[in-house]
Simulated assay, not measured.
Amino acid sequence: MPAKPATIKEIAKMLNVSASTVSRALHKHPSIGLSTQLKVQKLAKELNYEPNQTAIFFQKGKTYTIGVILPELSEAFFSAAVSAIEDTAYKRNYTVLLAQSHDDAEKEKQLVEKMKNHRVDGLLVSVAKTTANFEHFNMLKRYNIPVVFFDRIPPIKNIHYVACNMETGSIEAVNYLLQKGHRSIGMINGPPTLAASGERKEGYIKAMTKNRLKFDPSLIVSCNLTEQDTKAALETLLANKRSPTAIVTFNDYVALYAIKHARQLNINLDKDLQFVSYANLPLINYMDYIPVASVEQFPYLQGQKAADILMDLLVSKSQSADEVQAYYKVIVASQLVENRKK
């Protein structure tokens, strides 16, 4: 069995000096002579001394740990965002504590509480699709734990966030389909609780009206992003008296579910129905039928910018809570990418 690492008190007793002298010597404090420093450091190494990180963190008032709460790590979008967050945190000597809400508002609330109890210095969050009450995030202000939201942004004021411009992305998507000759364009949107759902809808309406086309609210159907709900949304659109020839879907996963169901309904996806989606994830390269275009949301860039903002907030964390604080509101430009089957 390896020897148990020695403590500062044990080293002090063996050298017949005070524990504070040993502590200062280990940190190369100028008040301790070089000879004493070398003796302490040599014995500490021989006895496998390891600093008590908990005590150090307590002394410095920080743990050098940030928390990340996101809906699903299995989604390629969030995996890319987490890679950027970890890369950024590593450069600043921070550890990342990762958790998934699985799109459950209650679990998200519990995770926020656990992150607080683990004394994370700050938090990065992409909210669950079912979250409607955001008090659990406001609670963190009492503990001076800064929060930066990314991608899925809660519809509340005075928050730091990084998001992709979904409104302009929607305008690009609808304009693209109009240029391809479509006039009846449907949308399978996300839950109304997500701010991004509202942005997609606004972009859709603006694109239609700017092209002097009447907006038909029955051509926009919301879903909870599951396969079953997407199938129901598709069937609702297909049953519309203005059955669409093209559909904009909330993301690539919804597009995948809708395309799969359309094929089961024997719909000709080359002639009768086309799809445009969001995220431009790698999975579309493995689909038999792919969306004709996808709105790139740059997940790595979003994650990187969100982590950079949190690091900046942690540097200025010591400022008085009474000071007026400026909130970071970063919008990443989206880009429509035309997909071509290989």
Results as ranks from 00 to 15, higher is better:
Glu86Leu: 11
Asn133Thr: 13
Gln41Met: 09
Ser79Leu: 07
Glu46Arg: 03
Tyr161Lys: 05
Glu46Ser: 08
Ser170Thr: 02
Leu97Gly: 10
Ile85Asp: 07
His160Arg: 11
Ala44Trp: 01
Tyr94Cys: 15
Phe149Trp: 06
Thr54Val: 14
Ile85Ala: 07
Asn133Trp: 11
Ala163Leu: 06
Ile159Met: 10
Thr168Leu: 12
Tyr143Asn: 11
Leu73Arg: 00
Thr54His: 08
Ala81Gln: 11
Asn144Val: 12
Leu98Arg: 01
Ile66Arg: 11
Ser83Gln: 09
Val68Ser: 00
His118Asp: 13
Cys164Glu: 04
Val147Cys: 04
Ser79Met: 06
Thr130Cys: 00
Arg92Glu: 15
Leu98Pro: 00
Val125Arg: 07
His136Arg: 01
Ser74Asp: 07
Leu123Arg: 04
Pro51Gln: 07
Phe57His: 15
Val147Thr: 11
Gly61Phe: 06
Thr168Val: 14
Lys116Asn: 10
Cys164Thr: 15
Phe78Met: 08
Glu86Gly: 07
Leu123Ser: 07
Asp87Pro: 04
Pro71Gln: 04
Phe78Val: 03
His102Val: 07
Lys91Asn: 14
Ser74Cys: 10
Gln41Pro: 04
Val82Ile: 04
His136Leu: 02
Met166Asn: 13
Leu43Tyr: 09
Tyr143Thr: 11
Pro155Gln: 03
Val120Leu: 06
Asn165Met: 08
His102Leu: 12
Lys42Cys: 12
Val120Gln: 05
Asp103Met: 03
Ala81Ile: 11
Lys116Thr: 10
Val68Pro: 00
Asp121Trp: 07
Asp87Trp: 11
Val68Met: 01
Leu97Ser: 12
Leu43Phe: 06
Gln110Ile: 12
Phe134Thr: 08
Ser74Gln: 12
Ser170Leu: 06
Thr131Tyr: 10
Ala89Met: 12
Leu38Lys: 15
Cys164Asp: 09
Val147Lys: 03
Gly67Gln: 02
Tyr94Val: 14
Leu73Gln: 01
Leu97Glu: 08
Lys129Cys: 02
Asp103Trp: 03
Gly61Ser: 10
Ser170Ala: 10
Gln110Asn: 14
Tyr94Gln: 14
Glu72Ile: 01
Asp121Gly: 10
Asn117Pro: 00
Arg119Met: 13
Glu135Gly: 01
Val40Pro: 09
Gly67Ser: 03
Tyr94Thr: 15
Thr95Arg: 13
Ala105Val: 01
Ile153Tyr: 08
Thr65Ser: 15
Ala84Phe: 01
Pro155Arg: 02
Gln100His: 04
Ser79Phe: 05
Gln59Ser: 15
Tyr64Asp: 14
Pro71Ala: 06
Gly67Ile: 06
Tyr90Asn: 14
Ile153Asn: 02
Leu124Met: 05
Thr95Pro: 05
Asn48Glu: 13
Ser170Met: 11
Glu108Pro: 01
Glu72Ser: 08
